[in-house]
Design a binder for these strands. Sequence first.
DNA 1: CGTGCGCTTGACTTTTTTCAATAAAGGTGG
DNA 2: CCACCTTTATTGAAAAAAGTCAAGCGCACG
Lengths: 241, 241
Amino acid sequence: MTYINKKCYFPCMTLKIDLCAIPLFQGLEPQYRALFADIAIEREFGRGRTIFSEGDPGTGFYVVASGRIKIFKLSSDGKEQILHIFGPGEPFGEAPVFSGKKFPANAEAIEKSRILYFPRDRFVDLVQNHPALALSIMAVLSERLHRFTDLVEQLSLKEVPGRLAAYFLYLSEHSGGQDTLDLDISKSQLASVLGTVPETFSRILGKMSKEGVISTDGKRSIRIMDRTGLEELADGTRRLS
Amino acid sequence: MTYINKKCYFPCMTLKIDLCAIPLFQGLEPQYRALFADIAIEREFGRGRTIFSEGDPGTGFYVVASGRIKIFKLSSDGKEQILHIFGPGEPFGEAPVFSGKKFPANAEAIEKSRILYFPRDRFVDLVQNHPALALSIMAVLSERLHRFTDLVEQLSLKEVPGRLAAYFLYLSEHSGGQDTLDLDISKSQLASVLGTVPETFSRILGKMSKEGVISTDGKRSIRIMDRTGLEELADGTRRLS
DNA sequence: CGTGCGCTTGACTTTTTTCAATAAAGGTGG
DNA sequence: CCACCTTTATTGAAAAAAGTCAAGCGCACG
């Protein structure tokens, strides 16, 4: 196991953050993992706290240790579009490290979170000497690109009911094909993920219930009643009346 | 100079594609560049020809040698969203090489183009032994992510007039601050880049002319008449009536 | 010289947002 | 434990933005 050893006022205290649990570092041989653990700095952010803002110089990147953070853009009149929501083990803010540009979006904790910070220069040095890690990073970046393609497709090519249906199916798929879905974020936040506003979101959820494709099962739980109907909504074959 | 040596029926013939002209390979020492030149395969595509389609397995990636290609998504009812347009020296289709997934979008030549193809396995081997190239690739991927962030912002947070204004300003900036802009793609294609349809595009162009922020200067040329006005449109401060 | 494709314009429909009001839920301090 | 306040969710009515359908124009190309 490779733990982060944070400097602190109680030298005997070792924080239990295991780099093995972070997919990014899993391709790495254990003895090298320690090198990365050494350069990491841990910080804690309360709910609603800003981790970085659009335009800040990217002096390093982050990994979520616990909690959840959102990456988002703001329009001039305050509307928010969430680009990603990251949980434990997921890296974020890594693009500026390699492109040399500034952060293109904002990052904020949506719940109390512990975050690892890897300073850019020392990290780049290490990456250059560990091709396995380089490939991991490329895989992460590629995966992000893939997600963005999907997001653009959703925003540009589908109407809100289609996006919502696709989202539910995605959620179901990533929880082993269950029909009961647990929304792990608030409905307002979900609206922002889907590129719309809470009012529209609420209305469409209502219509879906009325037409019997889903049923809302308490505050943060949804049940898929008619999977085929949902698939038709997702691909535009069917529309809500 | 490192040229591609294509196997062909006239062994003496050497195709004049210089890897030095491809930013991706510029960080590489010359003697290593030859290794990459060796694994490249050249192909030619006429206007409208498909290079790959969404869902194809990513057995390699491409670099534009000459011409231009578009990367796009299609909706179920045929609407197209262009994600990128790439010209000479630019790599594309590289994400699946590292993520191991399928192509998330389609690629098509918008004019007669020559394309270099780098097969995945041999390429990955080479990358692992050349950290400088790995960093280049990470830079390319990061740059793509940055562009996508902007695209999502445009699509989700701005109305069409704002997107168009931002596009004109971008074009101006990338041609040294000129007021006279050359649209190098058709207006329909531009509509697709901006996530809208030709009719809407045409109407908004008309309004912009009528309000005096731009003037259309022939078929593929635009002249910025009121840069401040355009900037206000781009950031949402001002709107067309 | 016609044919086709890209572009434009008008009229209409649909989708989504905005504004406003209300209701429900959650946390805090007394 | 409850009253209070803040946040979150829902609903209605009206406005705005964008898309669709249909027709017509013009230019390039065969």
